[in-house]
Design a protein around this nucleic acid. Sequence first.
DNA 1: CTGAAAGCGCTTACAG
DNA 2: CTGAAAGCGCTTACAG
Lengths: 327, 327
Amino acid sequence: MQDIADRLGISRGTVSLVLSGKAKEGRIGDELQNRVKELARELNYIPNEIARSLSTGVTKTIGVIVPDISNEFFGKMIFFIQEQAKYHGYAVITINTNECLKDFDEAVTILMNKQVDGIILVPVEGGNEIVKKIMSRKIPLVLIDRFYEDIDTTYIVTDNYDASSRAIELILNEGYKRNAVICYDINLFALTERKKGCIDVLKKHGVYDERLIKNIHYDNQEIEIEKAITDLKNEPDKVEAIFFCTRRIFLTGVKYMHQQGIHIPGDMRVICFDEVDAFSFANIPVTYIKQPIQQIGEKAIEALFDQIRGSDQAEHIVLNSEIKFSL
Amino acid sequence: MQDIADRLGISRGTVSLVLSGKAKEGRIGDELQNRVKELARELNYIPNEIARSLSTGVTKTIGVIVPDISNEFFGKMIFFIQEQAKYHGYAVITINTNECLKDFDEAVTILMNKQVDGIILVPVEGGNEIVKKIMSRKIPLVLIDRFYEDIDTTYIVTDNYDASSRAIELILNEGYKRNAVICYDINLFALTERKKGCIDVLKKHGVYDERLIKNIHYDNQEIEIEKAITDLKNEPDKVEAIFFCTRRIFLTGVKYMHQQGIHIPGDMRVICFDEVDAFSFANIPVTYIKQPIQQIGEKAIEALFDQIRGSDQAEHIVLNSEIKFSL
DNA sequence: CTGAAAGCGCTTACAG
DNA sequence: CTGAAAGCGCTTACAG
């Protein structure tokens, strides 16, 4: 920039005005503007956004924290978030938590140190204080997929309870009475709601059996899911259907069922919370719940920009999911 | 920082030394160090990395450019890249190109403006000049998945030609002679190598028929893939197997085959380049090529850090894939 | 062992 | 219409 100014015999300030598109405010002549732009191009001038950020206090960068970006569900969500962010001139830094509190804490610290203009995050169990820390800094914040009941943040979630209830209801109507639920043992809104939605409907129909509700530790999931399925298979009173609370549990579970020769749907009907890309090529019948992933991403960005623009209203958005059938 | 210095009656420089862990070099007393750290904690001091970056010229951020982060293959790769980067204290900004040159160019500009310390990217067709621009700035750079033959960059790829050859060879040995290939019409190393690997083996065995090689335009892929399959189905001389050059083509194709009642493997054997998470729950037999995704990600980071540390040797790394069977 | 000062590359009132 | 100057929050020789 100094270089350009020197060569043109003008001041750095003037160059800055032209290059940042504020030429009008500075009332700088068209001819001069062109000479500056021309020279900038010739010199392959690359503006240093770090310097600009330091000066303006704006980084044009947002942070996104998810459990695991390689998970199809979050991968797609981040794709939509990134495309929207790009459209608005923002870059996105993503960090994975692996559902681990320490990673979550570090992710938040990194993003705050980097002075991001806002954060979209999937909270981790027990991260309440960390989220409060962000809020105390007045950093624009949107929670997605889950939220903490004791903190009033903006959040975008789906109708977990209701969608699960409807799916189970459907299965019951098909005649499947003894239905099991396999879910993580994590105390987070989205998951507890799904479980609750199932249980309440089963109770309402008088077919609830608490032994058929299996809780899985995230860290040891493969083994525990397999054990759960073995247990269910060996139930004296035959289990007819399994509701898998997440796509990952579903994939692990069905893989194991194949290995064990448990036929779907002959031996067991299956329900999956979330869509799997590959339903399309598997020829097994699956009833599944399709969350509006694109909408979640876009609403999240929208709500975040509302805050970046100055709004301090906490918005609570609940989107509806669809129940679908794979065949 | 000024605040801390004032309260303790010392200079900003001293605080900086303590907080950035350079206390020893500055030979600052233990007791003073503790007081500084203590106060920083009390005040919830958050270092401004933007300021630090401007001063040091290092952002501790790397950029990653991929076609589409919601694609399982790139999603997993980025996961491993991010975990490694995190471990080394780096954050990562990811941007999608959607295989579009304009997006690719913009992505590179954004990353350069943000002064990232290095870039890992999946090149887009025709982006040669853009990559040269990065190199002329001496920004550490690693290409993954593909590379340009006319530019000497560091790259990490897999043995596309060889893996495809081996897979087709396997199928031929199983007795399937009339084999088709469906591939994108994109002139990029990874894809052309896959196609070439298939064709050369088919020729070697004297069963090559150019009408069975179908080229798909990326932008109109769904329709063209369906048309290709219809064409293959209607071949007078029965086609026995289809080699899908990417997982996305595979998913679209097999979905359509189901719709059309084409039975796998009764009517048609299928081969897929890349693994799909959900092979595990689909009970159709698929021969597939598994690229070492984690290794690609980790090698990429490693090669990038080599350059960040000053190396200017272009490394060319080719990793081996495995041929696997889904059942 | 510690402080004062310059500098990183921009932006933005302010004065003319 | 344009320039000189201060400032963003750090780091880092340098002097003492």
